[in-house]
Nucleic acid binder design. Structure first.
Length: 188
DNA sequence: AGCGGGATTTTCT
DNA sequence: GAAAATCCCGCTT
C-alpha cells in the first residue's frame, strides 16, 4: 500500500477525506501548493458521472486505480481536474472544485489575471491557476508533476454537504462537500 | 444582487 | 448534431 490508501474508498467518503489535503504542482521550475476546500463525488452508479455509461477513451483514467489525476476538457475552453478513487475497474473520481493557495499564490494570481478568492474558487479556475491541462491526464499523484499530499482529516463538524453544481442529472444527490466558512468555496 | 447570453471545441449519439 | 461536472461580462433591478 502507498500513502494514498485512503483513496480506496467510496467516492463520497474519499471526497470528504480529501478536504484539507494539499495538491503540489511542479511546473516552470517552481512548486505550487494548494489546499483542497471543495469537492464533488462521481461514480459509476451516478447518472451525472462521466463513468455512468461505461468506459470510453475519455474516461479511461477514471476506470484505472486510485491515486491518478483525471483531467477533462469542457465548454470548449475549460479543464477540470479530478482525483481517481476506488478500486481499479470501477469508474469513480472526485472533482476538485476549489482550493486555497498555500505556496505560489503570486504565480496562480498571475496566471488567472485575478486576485484573492477569484483566483481559485471554481474547478476550471483551479486548473488555469495551477497550469493543469489535458497533458496532465493520467498523472501519478505520488511521483508525477501533480502530487497529492495527505493532511490531517477535517472535522466532520466543519464540513458542509450539499447537492452538486452545474449538472443536469442526479441534481438531488448530496455529493458536494466543502469546508464551512472557507472564503475560497465557489458558492454557498 | 441577480439574470441572461456568448465564448468555443471535444465527445459521444 | 447536441450537450457539456464553466466562466465572464453586461444589463437590469
Amino acid at each position: 500500500m502507498n500513502r494514498l490508501s485512503f483513496l480506496d474508498d467510496t467516492a463520497p467518503s474519499a471526497a470528504r477525506r480529501l478536504l484539507g489535503c494539499y495538491i503540489k504542482r511542479h511546473v516552470d521550475g517552481q512548486t505550487i501548493t494548494a489546499r483542497i476546500v471543495e469537492t464533488e463525488a462521481y461514480d459509476a452508479t451516478d447518472a451525472a458521472s462521466h463513468s455512468f455509461k461505461g468506459e470510453t477513451k475519455r474516461t479511461k483514467v477514471m476506470f484505472g486505480p486510485a491515486g491518478y489525476l483525471y483531467v477533462y476538457f469542457t465548454y470548449g475552453m475549460h479543464y477540470c481536474c479530478n482525483i481517481v478513487v476506488g478500486s481499479e475497474g470501477y469508474g469513480a473520481a472526485v472533482l476538485i472544485r476549489a482550493v486555497e493557495p498555500v505556496e505560489g499564490k503570486d504565480y496562480m494570481e498571475k496566471r488567472r489575471g485575478k486576485s484573492g478568492v477569484q483566483a481559485t474558487n471554481g474547478p476550471a479556475k483551479v486548473c488555469q491557476a495551477m497550469n493543469i491541462d489535458i497533458a496532465d491526464n493520467g498523472t501519478d499523484l505520488i511521483n508525477g508533476a501533480v502530487q497529492l499530499v495527505e493532511q490531517p482529516e477535517v472535522e466532520e463538524s466543519k464540513i458542509t454537504t450539499t447537492s452538486r453544481i452545474g449538472i443536469s442529472a442526479a441534481k438531488q444527490t448530496p455529493w458536494r462537500f466543502y469546508i464551512t466558512d472557507n472564503p475560497y468555496v465557489s458558492r454557498k
